[in-house]
Design a protein around this nucleic acid. Structure first.
Lengths: 183, 183, 183, 183
DNA sequence: TATGAATGAGTTTTCATTCAT
DNA sequence: AATGAATGAAAACTCATTCAT
C-alpha cells in the first residue's frame, strides 16, 4: 500500500512533467525548447526531469505513443461494433475530433512534431502511424465488400483522405464542419 | 558581357548551393543537417556557403520564397483568365501537382519545414502562406457570386479544403487521383 | 542558511571564473584569449563559464564595472571629507596606487582593455569613465573656489592631468614617485 | 625609367592601401575591421591588398614603424642641435604635436593599437618604443649634467612624464596646453 | 527524491589568406 | 596587376545529459 502510493506519487510526478512538456512543445516547438523550459513549466528542478524520463526524445515518444495507442485501441473497438460502416467512420472521426477539443496541445504536438516530421520522429514512429491507416483502411475495405461504400477508391486512399480531413480540422480549427462526409 | 557572365557564374554557384541545400533538407530535415552537409553536397568548401548566403536560415527562407512567390504569381495569373471557376481551380491544382512532379524535394522541404512548422519558419512566413489562401478563396468567392459554385461552404473553408487536398497529394504521393474534383 | 551558503558557493565559483579571466586577460589580452583559456585557468569545464556569465564580453564589463564603481564611490567619499583639497587629491591618488599594488592584473586589464580601448569597450563605458573625471574635476573646482588651488588651469584639465599621472604610474610601474604633487 | 615609374606606381598603390588602412583602423579599431573594409576604403579589389602587403598585421607594423622611425630620427636630430635642453625638448614636443595636427588618424592608431597594446603589437615593438624613451632620457640626462635641469628626477622618469604629457594631449585633444613645461 | 552545478561535444559563423583567371 | 571566388581553421556559444550532494 505504501509502495503503491509511493509509486503512484512517482507516476503523478512523471505525468506532471510529461504534461508540462506537452504545453511547452505546443508553444515553442520541440527543437526550440530546452529541457530547462520543461522543468520550469512543471515547477520542478532541472535534474529531476531526468529522474522520470531518460531523454528529451523519450518525452515526445511517450506522449505520442500514449495517445496514439489509445486511438488505435478506439479504432479497433469501433471496428468491432456491429454497426454500418458509415457509422463506424463517424465514430472514429468523433473520437479524433473530441481529442482535439479535449486536449488540443497534445494533438498539436503529435501532428506537428511526429506525424508531420518526415525526417525525425515521424520516421521513428512510421510503423505506428501506418497501423492507424491500416485499421481505417480495413474498415473501408469491409464497407466496400458489404456494398456499403463505393469501390471506385482504394481503401488505402480512403484512409489517407480520412486522415487528410482530420489534418484540415486542425489546420483551420474548424471543428464543426467535418463530421458529415468522412468518405 | 564579362560582367554579366561573371555575375551569372556567381548566381549559378549560389543556385548550386541552394539546390544542394534543398536535397539535404529533404533528406535529413532542416534541423538535423549541418551547414557542412550542405557544403559537402554542393561539393564546395565550408566557407563558400557563407559567401553566397548569410545564414542557414536564409537558405530556407530563400528556397521557400522563390517557389511560393512563383505560386502566388501563377494563382493570380490563373484567376485573371477568362474561364469558368472550376477550370481556374483545375489550373491551380495542375500547377501545384506539376511542381511536385518536377521538383519533389523543394515541395517536401517547403511543406515539412515551412508550411507545417507552426513554431518556426511557418510563423515567419505566415503572411505569405495566408496570401495563397486568400487568392484561392477569392477565386472561390467569385465562383459563388457567379452561381458556379455552391454557397454552403465559405470561401475560406473551400480554400483550406483545397490546400488540404494538396497536402494529401504529398502525404501519399498519389499524383494521379487529384485533378478531378478540387472544389 | 543552506540557501545562503549555496548561493554563496555559486558566487564564489563565479568569482573564481572572473578572477581567472582577469589573469588571462592580463597575460594574453582580451582578444587573444579564448573562453577555453579562461576555463582552463579557472580549472573548470568549458560550459561552466557560461553557467555563470552570459558572454565573454560580459566578463570584461563586469570586471571593469565592479572596480570602477568602487573607485567612484571612494572618490565621492573622499570628496565628502572635511579636509584640504590637496589632502583629498592625495587620498584619491593613494587609493588608486593601492589598487595597483593590491591587484595589478585587474588594473592592467581595466586600463589596457577598457579605458584605452577607444573603439570597443572604452566606447561602451565612456559614461562611467567620464564620471570619474567629473568627480575629480569637482574636487579641483571646489579647491579653486576656496583659493586652495591655482585657477590658471581648468578643473577639467586638472582632472585629465591627474588621470595622466595615474596612467604614468601604471605605464612605468613607478609607484613611489607620484604622491607628492598630484595637481 | 619605365621601371622606375612602374615601381613608383606600385609604391603609390601600396601607399593608397596603407593610408586607407589607417583611416579604417582609426575609425573601427584594428580588431574590429576586416581586410575587406580596407580594400573598400582604398577602392581596390579585396585580393589586391595581398599584392602589396603580406598580412593584416604587416599593415599595422608598417604604419607604426614608418612614423616611429621618423620620430626617432627627428629626436636624434634635435638632440644633435647646439641648443639649450629646454629648447630641444620643446622641439621634440613640437614635432609630436605637429604630427597630431597633421595626421591624427595615424597617431591615434599608433597609440591605441601599438603603444598601448601591451599584449600584442606593443610587445612586438617594445624595442622601438623604448628607443624613443631612451633618446629623450638621454637629452634629459645631458641637461642634468649641464645643470640646466633639476636632478631630483631620474632621466627615465622624466622621459616617461614627457610621454605621459603627450598621451594626455591625445586623450583630451588639448593641443594648445602642452608646449610650456615638458619637464 | 530532489537540486542545480558541471561537463563537453556539436554547430554556426567569421574572416585572414590563397588561388584561378 | 587586378579581381573576387574559394578555402578552412578558429572561436563563441548552446544545451542535452550526468553527477555530487
Amino acid at each position: 500500500m505504501a509502495s503503491t502510493s509511493r509509486s503512484q506519487a512517482a507516476a503523478d510526478k512523471r505525468r506532471l512533467i510529461l504534461d508540462a512538456a506537452v504545453r511547452v512543445f505546443a508553444r515553442q516547438g520541440f527543437h526550440a525548447c530546452r529541457v530547462s523550459d520543461i522543468a520550469d513549466e512543471a515547477g520542478v528542478a532541472y535534474g529531476l526531469v531526468y529522474h522520470y524520463v531518460s531523454s528529451k526524445d523519450e518525452i515526445l515518444d511517450t506522449v505520442f505513443l500514449e495517445r496514439w495507442n489509445v486511438m488505435l485501441h478506439v479504432i479497433a473497438e469501433v471496428d468491432a461494433r456491429d454497426a454500418p460502416v458509415r457509422e463506424k467512420l463517424r465514430g472514429v472521426a468523433a473520437f479524433i475530433v473530441d481529442s482535439y477539443v479535449h486536449d488540443p496541445d497534445v494533438m498539436k504536438v503529435i501532428i506537428v512534431e511526429v506525424t508531420r516530421a518526415a525526417n525525425s520522429f515521424g520516421l521513428t514512429h512510421l510503423g505506428k502511424i501506418r497501423e492507424a491507416y491500416k485499421l481505417i483502411a480495413d474498415i473501408v475495405a469491409k464497407g466496400q465488400a458489404d456494398g456499403e461504400l463505393r469501390t471506385d477508391v482504394t481503401p488505402d486512399f480512403a484512409a489517407l483522405a480520412f486522415y487528410g480531413a482530420i489534418e484540415q480540422v486542425r489546420t483551420g480549427w474548424i471543428f464543426d464542419l467535418l463530421p458529415q462526409s468522412p468518405e
